[in-house]
Design a protein around this nucleic acid. Structure first.
Length: 886
RNA sequence: GCCCGGGUGGCGGAAUUGGUAGACGCGCUGGACUCAAAAUCCAGUGAUAGCAAUAUCGUGCGGGUUCGAUUCCCGCCCCGGGUACCA
């Protein structure tokens, strides 16, 4: 038999489609397994070789699970709202829906050419009004939910208690009060705005180099705009706590924990000298209060104006004006020197009555804590730097007993900053009954906190870095908000029977310069009149791309439902997702957002699980070789030739260095999966992507590597396709042993997602078959089953060639039999002082005393003990023998 | 700075409740087949020395624990990712 992969793959893909082999339905007689890929954005560039990596991994698991009796849900869909289709519309006038449909068709064709076992009847598309109807529906739920701090959960807005004092002030106050509690709210906010994309974006979308995640430019700035926000920080504690039970990579959990940024500390009130005002600060180290020698307000702090003395007024005004002009990047640049201005005002340190200066400085941020700090320059590097610049007193209250003498002296004299633990000094005030000298850090924090609390000066506080999620975008190609802004100021959402609110046709897709959305050109669509003649205007922003992906995994459980987002029965049966595979780039974006929505839906009784994704796996990126000159500038791959393992310019002969880089058009090193499928087949592509290295590692693509696995498949065909290689009768012991080792290794490795070593074991098995020349029918057929999850087309073809009538995809997995692995002898490595020298084959279960005798009697041993004495003989049964000589 | 990963042949990578380092694949070398080439099959392939048996060295660096360390401990170096005046 020839390996005609084109014919084989076409034939089986057709068979699976015609027979709906992978259609999944609720079946309570089987355990369920929900295996999900992060659905792609269908870009115009088509599938990238990175896509099939995760898809193949989940497909192997799904096929393995089916063979093990699981009812598997394995769906695919399109996260199809997004910028490129809109940019294309701006340039060409082509409606994004047309571009999107075309791209989805390409993606579907490409994915289907890989033989992935998706249930295509469940395909969804976030831009389909039948889908985004329910995205809008969930938004109205967020709008109509408030967070009950006491019960630590979201509740219906109708259950929100209105305090009498609010009620007494009339309906407007009540409505404002309610609006202030909704999880989705519309308000003025300091937001990130990208000048390139002409839209606002979320905190999470602004990368640490100040660039915008979507477009990569650094044209991101702060603006004050009225926007839709979601109160995700209410769920901070639940989002944090939920991580513990999840089977997720530790790194992703850590990233989410860091992003949520919980810190415990205390709020402390400082009296402001000469006023009856108080200044409240947040600190994680209330125990260092004795060392607080000055205070700092953020430039935007509301008290700045009030407390500044007339003598300092001009200086403070100047400073704030300059701070406002600075870009955020400048302001947060650690390398720059600290700046600030004295307000002229003093505060009273409550723990020792000291009069301390109040400053304004931009190293304190308004968005965290209270926007004001107590500064402890002796033990905080930022405060130390500032105090040194402005000659503010520095008091040491933590004696660095274990530091070297020079440093310790400096610290004690306030000439150096000490941020680690030390013994408290100067930390007692007999008059006020507070003393922490001699205590541990934990006790110090506790003692000061409870002293503050009992004196009405402060209380323990928890703070989070997590901020409200900016949820609106000035874009056309997104879900319209089901929202009306009425002329009397009321903001309302559409009722369920008014959904979906479809995207209107517009002539201009371009957003305005000053932040107005393309939908503001939508004419009649914009204007609404209610039954009382009240006029309103529809929301013209659209939802961010995250909205559709926040709940798509739920829709897959019941994708055609037009009465509800999904039925309770389907959700109950399929959720949670048992395995979720995708790239690590969503660690704090999609994965945090969807957990948040899921928890809200859980609180409202719409979903039955607290967490959506039980197990998460991040596949690594597939890179490619690229070339650079000695000075490090990159060279397109088509200008490079190889000679004897070195790389040279075709034109100039200059030698280049081979490096590993992301595939990119400019480097001309992009690999198109279509070409690979054409030249080597889908099975080879699948196999190679799994064989190249561990699934979670980044690894480079090599054409020769594909040839390697292609050759393996060809060898499989050459051996098993030739029925003269198949013998009758009993299988040899040796072959049975390797076969069962392979069953065990492949099963364990699929379970552990170590596909590269599973494949190498199948290669070992095949090499063995070539060596022995003949195997029996049962051995061959068992091997096809092991191969099936990886190379399903070829496995089905061989399965059929051997006369099996039913399709292999649901045939039970082979059973591993330990008894074929038992050996009668073991080849012991004999080592001297830990160095293995030779081998000795001995019966298994030989008593240690006999092993010792046998080793000492062996001719090789003499050489190593000659002239030395044996100190000890260590025998680890069926592992190793070590002789210690002196 | 802080938090995660990671460092093993020419290359991708195997192997860890501490027990034969380098499975499998690529590349390379030699052989068979062929008029020849390609493809394929067979053999070899960590480095150094040696015809060879074999010996010495060898898992980023320096120590330590142990009969025995890629694996455990301490101290460093380098690379990748995340994050950052978060008080």
């Amino acid at each position: 038999m020839d390996y005609n992969f084109k014919e084989i793959e076409k034939k089986w893909q057709q068979y699976w489609a015609d027979n709906k082999t992978f259609k999944s339905e609720i079946d309570h007689t089987k355990p369920k397994y929900y295996c999900l890929d992060m659905f792609p954005y269908p870009s115009g560039a088509g599938l990238h070789v990175g896509h099939p990596e995760g898809y193949t991994a989940t497909d192997i698991i799904c096929r393995y699970k089916r063979a093990n009796g699981f009812n598997v849900l394995h769906p695919m869909g399109w996260d199809a709202f997004g910028l490129p289709a809109e940019q294309y519309a701006i340039q060409t006038g082509t409606h994004p829906a047309i571009t999107t449909r075309k791209n989805c068709d390409t993606f579907r064709r490409q994915i289907q050419s890989l033989g992935l076992s998706y249930d295509w009847e469940r395909e969804i598309n976030t831009t389909d009004p039948k889908y985004y109807k329910w995205t809008q529906w969930i938004f109205t739920r967020l709008f109509n939910t408030w967070f009950d701090q006491k019960q630590n959960r979201g509740r219906k807005i109708s259950e929100l208690p209105i305090p009498a004092a609010i009620k007494n002030q009339g309906e407007t106050t009540v409505q404002n009060y309610i609006a202030g509690k909704r999880l989705a709210y519309y308000d003025n906010a300091q937001v990130w705005y990208c000048r390139t994309c002409k839209t606002v974006c979320a905190n999470e979308e602004v990368l640490n180099d100040g660039s915008h995640e979507k477009c990569g430019t650094r044209e991101v700035e702060r603006r004050y705009l009225k926007q839709w926000m979601l109160r995700i920080p209410h769920y901070a504690e639940r989002l944090l706590g939920g991580l513990d039970q999840l089977d997720w990579p530790a790194g992703v959990k850590d990233m989410q924990r860091n992003w949520i940024g919980r810190s415990t500390g205390a709020e402390v009130d400082f009296a402001i000298d000469g006023t009856n005002k108080k200044l409240r600060v947040y600190t994680t180290r209330p125990d260092t209060l004795f060392g607080a020698t000055y205070m700092v307000l953020a430039p935007e702090h509301e008290l700045v104006d009030e407390i500044t003395t007339s003598g300092q007024r001009e200086a403070v005004k100047d400073y704030i004006r300059n701070a406002a002009l600075k870009s955020d990047l400048d302001r947060t640049d650690l390398a720059k020197n600290k700046t600030g201005v004295f307000t002229g005002r003093y505060a009273i340190n409550p723990i020792n009555g000291a009069k301390i200066q109040i400053w304004v400085a931009d190293y304190v941020l308004m968005g965290y804590g209270t926007g004001a700090i107590m500064a402890v320059p002796g033990h905080d590097t930022r405060d130390f730097e500032f105090a040194q610049t402005f000659n503010i007193p520095i008091i040491c209250i933590l004696d660095p007993k274990n530091a070297d003498a020079d440093l310790r002296t400096k610290v004690l004299n306030g000439e150096a900053c000490w941020t680690e633990d030390g013994a408290y000094i100067n930390s007692s005030n007999k008059e006020l009954g507070i003393e922490i000298n001699g205590l541990s850090k934990e006790d110090g924090i506790m003692t000061v906190t409870s002293w503050l609390e009992s004196n009405g000066l402060g209380q323990p506080t928890i703070n989070y870095k997590l901020r409200d999620w900016l949820f609106s975008r000035q874009r056309y190609w997104g879900e319209p908000f089901p929202v009306i802004h009425w002329e009397d100021g009321e903001v309302s959402v559409l009722s369920d029977d008014e959904l979906p609110l479809p995207l209107p046709e517009v002539e201009k897709y371009l957003p305005g310069e000053s932040g107005e959305s393309p939908l503001s050109n939508a004419g009649d669509w914009l204007i609404v009149t209610d039954k009382n003649g009240r006029k309103g205007r529809r929301e013209t922003n659209t939802m961010p791309q995250w909205a559709g992906s926040c709940w798509y995994y739920l829709r897959f459980t019941d994708p055609a439902n037009n009465k509800e987002p999904f039925s309770k029965v389907a959700e109950n049966y399929w959720m949670p997702v048992d395995l979720y595979v995708g790239g690590a780039e969503h660690a704090v974006l999609h994965l945090l957002y969807s957990r948040f929505w899921h928890k809200v839906l859980f609180d409202l009784g719409i979903v039955s699980t607290e967490e959506p994704f039980r197990k998460l796996f991040n596949q690594g990126m597939i890179l490619a070789f690229a070339y650079e000159t000695a000075s490090g500038s990159k060279v397109p791959s088509d200008q490079v030739e190889e000679r004897e393992g070195k790389y040279f310019s075709i034109e100039t002969g200059e030698e280049f260095r081979q490096i590993v880089a992301k595939m990119s058009k400019s480097l001309k090193n992009v690999v198109n999966p279509d070409d690979v499928v054409n030249n080597y087949g889908a099975d080879a592509l699948r196999l190679f992507e799994m064989f190249i290295g561990p699934l979670d590692a980044t690894k480079p693509w090599t054409e020769n590597g594909v040839k390697g696995v292609y050759n393996f498949l060809r060898r499989v065909v050459a051996f098993f396709g030739e029925l003269t290689n198949i013998a009758d009768g009993e299988e040899s012991k040796e072959t049975l042993k390797i076969l069962h080792q392979t069953i065990r290794k492949v099963s364990d490795d699929i379970r552990d997602m170590k596909f590269n070593t599973a494949i190498s074991q199948m290669m070992v098995f095949t090499n063995h078959c070539y060596k022995v020349g003949k195997v029996n029918r049962e051995t061959a057929v068992t091997f096809f089953q092991l191969l099936a999850p990886f190379a399903p087309h070829l496995a089905e073809e061989l399965w059929q060639l051997y006369g099996n009538e039913s399709v292999l995809s649901y045939h039970p997995w082979p059973i591993f039999n330990e008894s074929f692995l038992t050996e009668e002898t073991f080849g012991y490595p004999v080592s001297f002082n830990g160095k293995a020298r030779f081998k000795i084959t001995l019966p298994i279960d030989l008593p240690n005393s006999d092993i010792e005798k046998a080793v000492l009697a062996d001719a090789h041993t003499n050489k190593w003990i000659e002239g030395k004495s044996i100190a000890k003989i260590i025998i680890v049964p069926n592992k190793i023998i070590n002789i210690v000589v002196k």
